[in-house]
Computed example of a mutant assay.
Amino acid sequence: MDFLVGAEDDDGRSRRRSRASSGRGGKRGRRRKRRRNKGGFLAPMLAVLILVGGIGAGGYYGYTWLSDVMTPDDYTGQGTGEVTVEIEAGQTAGDVAQTLVEQDVVKSAKAFTNAIAAAGKSSSLQPGVYLLRKQMSAAAAVELLDPGKQLLDRVTLKEGLRLSDTLTTLAKATGKPLKEFQQAARNARALGLPSYARSRLEGYAFPATYDITPNMSAADILTAMVDRFNETAEKEKLVAGAKELGRTPHEIITIASIVQAESGKADDMGKIARVIYNRLEEGRKLEMDSTVFYGLNKYGIAATNADLESTSPYNTYRRTGLPPGPIGNPGDHAIQAALNPPEGDWRWFVATDPERGITEFASTEAEFFRLKAKFEKSRTGG
């Protein structure tokens, strides 16, 4: 078994010799070894503590630096002065942020995009014109970009309104000079009028409610009205419908404008359109007071004998056929009536009670005279 007991360790010393070591020398050796081990542990620990302390100090300053980097520049408060900002269709929150930075409304694009995301309004931005302030906080800017706070003029234009009255209404509503609208109305090509309009806006400035922003010019506003007409014409299949009736689209709009002017309510429009078609087909004069008044630039219910002497091309008591063009701007109901008149043999109609919008129809001349007498009686209060 000596070969086991006497086997050498890696360092060349025999196990027997190390076991035989005794006395003070052996104990001192062990004591020294412990001291060396203790010192070997403290030195790395001290280094670790110094390192951690260094990281802690650096971490604090690093955190401060990162915080400054991660927090975007932003103004504080509600800002000063006034700035008009327009959001265009299709713009993203990032696009709007850049516009706000360029106009010095917010200090940084990131501050705005963060604020609008925090408010949950990133997808609620609406095209329009808004009133903001210079150097305001991003959060305050987000609040003022609410769709309900848009700067606009809401204008409602009634069906049948003449172009001259339409332009006057628009000028008053927007504060723009009437001359600007009159000049814009003469530039048919710029407004996008259909070719069959014969370069005249009358009849094609579609009556509706329009939201008008301060940045819109007179031409922009009228173009929007023509665009609305074109949409309606397409929806109602105006061109195809006119062809089926043996008429041009311009003639249909002219008929629709007379229907609009003569009717007291939408339910009567189809019958009035049928009266017009029946008289045209028989070669009768239309004898419409509304066309006479338009030619005279007057308003009224019943034309006088003096009015009927007018030489205007719109005097349908003296001239056969349709007048040269529309006498107002018809709405969609009137256009529908002109395209789809009901069957019937009516050749006359009389507004027997204009105040209540009551119109009665006649197929014979005798019936017409009876209705006319009824109208005269209501006018005199008899």
Results as ranks from 00 to 15, higher is better:
M1Y: 09
V5D: 12
G6A: 13
E8L: 15
R15T: 02
R17Y: 11
S18F: 12
S21C: 04
G25K: 11
K27Y: 13
R28K: 13
R32G: 12
R36G: 00
R36M: 08
M45I: 14
L46M: 11
V48P: 03
L49W: 11
G53Q: 05
I55R: 03
Y60F: 14
G62A: 08
W65C: 01
D68Y: 00
D68N: 03
T71Y: 09
T71S: 04
V83F: 09
T84M: 15
T84A: 13
I87T: 01
Q91D: 11
Q103D: 14
F112I: 11
A119G: 07
S124P: 03
Q126C: 03
R133L: 01
Q135Y: 03
A138N: 06
A139V: 07
A141I: 05
V142L: 10
L145N: 05
L145H: 10
D153S: 06
K158Y: 14
L161D: 09
D165F: 10
T166W: 00
K172V: 02
G175W: 00
K176L: 11
P177S: 05
E180T: 01
N187P: 02
A188L: 14
L191Q: 04
G192R: 03
G192Y: 05
Y196R: 00
A197Y: 06
L201A: 10
L201N: 02
A205L: 11
F206H: 09
D211P: 02
I212Q: 05
I212H: 00
S217R: 00
A219T: 10
L222Y: 00
L222D: 08
D227W: 00
E244L: 14
G246T: 01
G246Q: 05
I253Y: 03
I253C: 08
I253F: 05
S257W: 09
Q260A: 13
A261P: 04
S263L: 07
M269P: 00
I272G: 04
A273N: 04
N278S: 06
N278G: 01
L280S: 03
G283R: 02
Y294L: 10
N305L: 11
P313T: 04
T320H: 11
P324N: 07
G331C: 14
H333W: 04
N340Y: 09
G344D: 14
F349E: 07
F349L: 12
T352L: 08
G357E: 12
E360K: 13
F361A: 05
F361P: 07
S363P: 06
L371E: 06
A373F: 03
S378I: 02
T380V: 12
